[in-house]
Design a binder for these strands. Structure first.
Length: 883
RNA sequence: GGGAGCAUAGCUCAGCUGGUUUAGAGCACCUGCCUUACAAGCAGGGGGUCAUGAGUUCGAAUCUCUUUGCUCCCACCA
């Protein structure tokens, strides 16, 4: 078979992916084998694959493929999330382009558009994952708004309501004026913003007219003054003691409001006077409650001022701020303004400035679930990787406030609550059941008398059920129900791979749902990936244009190359600085593997040839190296140190297998490609093992070569084949070989330095310990004609001398030896070892050290001393023989 | 404002339950090579007072504290 010198991923990747699909290797059904299950963090159905997905899904695929090769019944469940607010925003924008206003169409019409859009774009991201090689069980592809998934959400709502965990109430919520919906605390992102602090004059009231004197009140939100209901000072504040109870006038509208006192106010901030606006500030709301103030809401859901404001009606809150500033100035009520840096909340999804807003919403009590979910992590039933996230996790779980779960949107699961004409509410899974409940209160009621709550639940209220409902959608909402066979087999899942920014949104809540409905964790390990940034450490964003298109990268470098590039620079929890050069390294590695295979394939197996000593020794060494590598790999995977595992394989393949093993055994001489059968067979076996170890990281090229390695039948695949055994290893023998390598590197270095061509054969004397059965390899790799063991330093002149461990080596160089240079080299080394000896002896002469240090450490130091002494003696002798 | 984490070679990182010679890897870099597997390659090589200052210790990259510089999380003092 003639193979091209350059590996071309484009001819293999699609071929093998279709092959895997055709033979349903990704599909899993419960059986008697041990299972390994993973649920994908469902990407937004509107989403397009970005580098974060690439990283995340590569990691999952590596874990999944490795488990599968270990013989586990492996199930990776894929799917997408309906992402209510993000998707709804997209659909609204899309309709707007078509000239359709959401407010002008019915809920049903809107949902039709939304579903149509989902059908058209919803699978893009999953198709992209296939390009990456993701071995998901596509038969199980799910969607958080599939009917049975939605049913699970509804049942959960009903169950938790009946448990008294869900309640409805008026609360100050985070309002997104762009999405026109409430959002949870976690969906608000605080950013520092340069604003102004305005100092406003609230004149004392003289029967509703401006009296003498005023209170100066500092605020960042002058547009809300019309909703003021008091000015508040600290009761301890001597400046204002006599003023409590007096009335002041709101600037511009001259409305009379009282001066009240509350401990909340800090005396040394601003002027010590705080305007109280209960409708538009959470703290003011609390103060308002304490002082029984009414509430005046002047801002509409879309962020514009309403009639209640009296002035600037219809203006957007920020436009109103600008205008009111001018008006205040003109009326003499703006005392001064100063620059002020403050934290402003933005909506995670729409980036609109969050407006605190009083509204009637549904809440889920988190206190008890959070406490239980904390225990899972604290006692190690759920492990976070890296461990540092335990602190943040604990902090959040200890301070979690009730979760606002209602959203004023249409795209999502509608809240299963029905209102009776008298305003009473019934909560039930279906309209019929709701009617039954309602009729218990009033038998005359009919279906049309009931009004379903128009809101939907938060997306996370569906995704927190994901690891349960993908297996058994009937289980959420029904803690007593016996789990179906799937849930019983696959749950809890093994590993979850996700980003730390949704640790609370999602991970914590899945643990809560797991506890509530299964009394069991949803997964054992949570591997938290870092964020993918560009090489300058900046976040990848569309506006910066620094985010590469993953599909283009795959087309350019191959999926294996991209996977390797990502995996090389990922350590759990640390952000990864992505640079295309890493992907290039991945591609180069593919090419290396490819060419190693080409070399092996170019040989002719010849049964009549005997096994050469050099090959025998190389085989013995490499077999042990593989055994020790597998042991290391086990350990690295256990600790989720995936980049290190890959780097280890990279070095084993490139440095050890290619540069040493293959170079030692490869047939030499022109045109001669014959190789003895034993070496040939063993080399294929080694190749087989290496391909197996590499496969989780680089599935395509390994499958391609594995298929070629031996005769294969249709239906076979590396991904479901077992790894050949490697046996045991002896550490001393590996170390011995490492010294052999060091010797050869020294000889090559000498050649390089002295410009001795490879063809010029050299002679080597060995004084000291060095196994004779490795002479052959030394000769071959070092280009030597003779290796001579000696008892004493040879008498021969012009010897180039060097040390490895305590063994001395000499190479006669004749004219080439520069005695002066040689002497200074030896003297340099001598100085080094003398200094070294000095530090060691300093330690050993220190009675404190000898007394207090552990015996083993002292022994090591003594060994260091004797070694150094031996080396110094050797060097001195070499030096004297130079003269 | 509170909390957490990080700082080791030009870059990305490992080492951090203190003691395996005087700190490692990959990439990048430098030198020499188109040696019929691979120039996406081969061979060789240089490069770090482990951010700072102090302390604990016989001994510190590793433990404690100080300073500086980044990063993240939490927190609604107008």
């Amino acid at each position: 078979m003639e193979l091209p010198a350059i590996y071309d991923p484009s001819v293999t990747e699609d071929k093998w992916y279709s092959y895997w699909l055709k033979h349903r290797f990704f599909h899993s059904e419960p059986d008697e084998r041990p299972k390994y299950s993973v649920v994908i963090p469902p990407p937004n159905v509107t989403g397009v694959l970005h580098m974060g997905h690439m990283l995340n899904n590569t990691i999952q695929d590596v874990l999944v493929r490795r488990a599968r090769m270990q013989g586990k019944n492996t199930c990776w469940v894929p799917g997408t999330d309906h992402a209510s607010i993000a998707t709804e925003a997209k659909v609204v924008a899309l309709l707007k382009e078509k000239g359709i206003d959401k407010t002008g169409i019915s809920r049903e019409e809107f949902l039709e558009h939304a579903w149509a859009w989902k059908e058209k774009h919803g699978n893009i991201i999953l198709e992209q994952l296939k390009k990456l090689g993701a071995s998901c069980d596509w038969d199980r592809t799910n969607f958080t708004m599939n009917p049975d998934m939605s049913r699970a959400v509804t049942d959960t709502f009903v169950h938790l309501y009946n448990q008294g965990l869900i309640y409805r109430g008026v609360r100050m919520v985070n309002w997104d004026p762009q999405g026109k919906t409430a959002v949870s605390d976690e969906e608000v992102i605080h950013r520092e913003v340069n604003e102004k602090l305005y100092y406003l004059r609230y004149f004392f009231s003289n029967d509703g007219k401006r009296g003498d004197g005023y209170l100066s009140v500092a605020t960042t939100r002058p547009e809300t003054i019309m909703a003021d209901l008091a000015v508040c000072v600290n009761p301890q504040d001597e400046r204002y003691l006599g003023l409590i109870g007096r009335k002041v006038l709101i600037p511009l509208i001259d409305k009379e409001i009282p001066v009240i006192a509350d401990d909340y106010v800090t005396m040394d901030f601003g002027t010590g006077c705080l305007k109280i606006t209960p409708a538009h500030d959470p703290n003011d709301y609390e103060i308002g409650l304490r002082h029984k103030l009414p509430v005046i809401d002047i801002i509409d859901p879309d962020g514009t001022l309403n009639d209640q404001a009296q002035i600037l009606v219809g203006e957007d809150r920020f436009a109103a701020r600008k205008k009111i500033r001018t008006m205040l100035q003109e009326s003499g009520c703006l005392e001064k303004e100063e620059p002020y840096v403050t934290q402003v909340g933005f909506s995670e999804r729409t980036d609109a400035v969050i407006e605190p807003r009083l509204s009637l919403q549904w809440f889920l009590k988190l206190e008890v679930p959070a406490k239980k979910a904390l225990e899972y992590v604290e006692d190690g039933r759920v492990k976070l990787i890296p461990d540092k996230y335990r602190n943040t996790y604990r902090h959040w779980m200890e301070t979690a406030r009730d979760w606002c779960i209602s959203r004023q949107l249409w795209w999502g699961q509608q809240i299963p609550a029905w209102y009776l004409p008298d305003g009473e509410v019934v909560v039930a899974s279906t309209a019929e059941e709701a009617l039954k409940l309602a009729m218990k209160k009033d038998p005359s009621l009919k279906q049309e008398d009931l009004q379903q709550d128009p809101d939907v639940v938060d997306t996370w209220f569906s995704s927190w059920l994901w690891p349960i409902s993908v297996f058994d959608p009937g289980k959420p909402g029904h803690p007593q129900k016996t789990p179906n066979a799937e849930l019983a087999y696959y749950y809890p899942t093994d590993d979850l791979v996700t980003a730390p920014d949704i640790l609370f949104f999602w991970v914590a809540r899945m643990i809560m749902a797991g506890e509530i409905y299964c009394q069991e964790k949803p997964f054992s390990n949570v591997y938290l990936t870092g964020m993918v940034r560009d090489k300058l450490g900046r976040k990848m964003s569309k506006s910066l244009g620094n985010s590469p298109d993953p599909i283009e990268l795959i087309n350019k470098y191959g999926a294996d190359g991209v996977r390797m590039g990502l995996m090389l620079c990922t350590s759990a929890g640390n952000d990864i600085l992505f640079d295309e050069s890493q992907v290039e390294q991945g591609r180069n590695f593919c090419n290396k593997i490819w060419n190693a295979y080409r070399l092996v394939r170019s040989w002719k197996r010849d049964k009549s040839l005997p096994l050469e000593e050099t090959s025998g020794q190389a085989i013995k060494w490499f077999r042990q190296l593989l055994a020790s590598t597998r042991e290391e790999m086990e350990d690295l995977f256990l600790k989720f140190r995936l980049s290190e595992a890959l780097m280890l394989l990279y070095k084993r393949f490139w440095d050890d297998f290619c540069s040493w093993y293959l170079e030692i055994i490869k047939p030499v001489g022109t045109g001669k490609k014959k190789i003895d059968a034993a070496t040939y067979d063993t080399t294929l076996e080694f190749f087989d093992i290496l391909l197996h170890m590499l496969h989780p990281f680089m599935p395509f090229i390994t499958e391609e070569l594995w298929q070629n390695l031996y005769e294969r039948n249709e239906g076979e695949s590396i991904m479901v084949s077992s790894i050949p055994g490697t046996g045991s290893y002896k550490q001393e023998e590996l170390e011995q070989f490492a010294r052999l390598q060091e010797l050869i590197v020294s000889i090559r270095g000498l050649r390089q330095k002295k410009q001795i061509p490879g063809k010029t054969a050299l002679k080597l004397y060995i004084k000291g310990k060095f196994p004779e059965n490795l002479y052959g390899i030394v000769k071959r790799m070092g280009g030597l004609e003779e290796v001579v063991p000696v008892k004493d330093t040879p008498r021969e002149g012009n010897l180039y001398a060097f040390l490895i461990g305590t063994t001395e080596f000499f190479i006669p160089l004749g004219e080439l030896l520069d005695t002066k240079e040689e002497r200074s080299k030896l003297q340099g080394e001598l100085e080094y070892y003398r200094n070294f000896l000095a530090t060691v002896e300093k330690k050993l002469k220190n009675p404190n050290f000898v007394q207090r240090a552990p015996e083993q450490v002292v022994v090591t130091e003594q060994k260091k001393r004797s070694d150094a002494l031996a080396k110094i003696a050797a060097l001195e002798q070499q030096l004297s023989s130079l003269k």
